[in-house]
């Protein structure tokens, strides 16, 4: 069993105009086969309007154990949220 087919990640855009969402993975020799298999495995009940398939080896992921330093810079910038600002009650529609 030396010849395992390469792994692909599958993303589907659902019916309601949402973004493509990761749904799982599958094995296929090339993009065409990955697309066909994705249709058969992940959209048997009309779940999708569009499919992306990406070779798993091409995905670069952040490292969970380093999520502290990675996301830290955004933590102390509370002024990015609208609730940071006090607007007087008599001011309307803002």
């Amino acid at each position: 069993m030396a010849n395992e087919l390469p792994l692909w990640e599958v993303f589907i855009r659902g019916q309601h105009g949402t973004a493509h969402r990761h749904v799982g993975s599958l094995h296929a020799t090339d993009a065409g086969m990955a697309m066909n298999n994705a249709r058969d495995v992940y959209t048997r009940r009309n779940e999708g309007l569009s499919i992306w398939v990406v070779p798993s080896s091409e995905i670069v992921a952040s490292i969970p154990s380093k999520k502290g330093p990675l996301f830290d810079p955004s933590k102390d910038k509370i002024y990015r949220h609208p609730s940071f600002y006090n607007i007087p009650v008599e001011v309307k529609k803002i």
Binding site: E4, L7, G24, S25, L26, H27, D40, V41, R44
Partner: peptide, 21 residues
């Protein structure tokens, strides 16, 4: 065909733990 699909969903979930198909 669904059963085959279910097998594949589960294999693909198991593969995320580093075991090959």
């Amino acid at each position: 065909q669904d059963e085959a699909g279910h097998g594949l969903y589960l294999y693909s979930a198991a593969e995320t733990l580093g075991k090959s198909r």
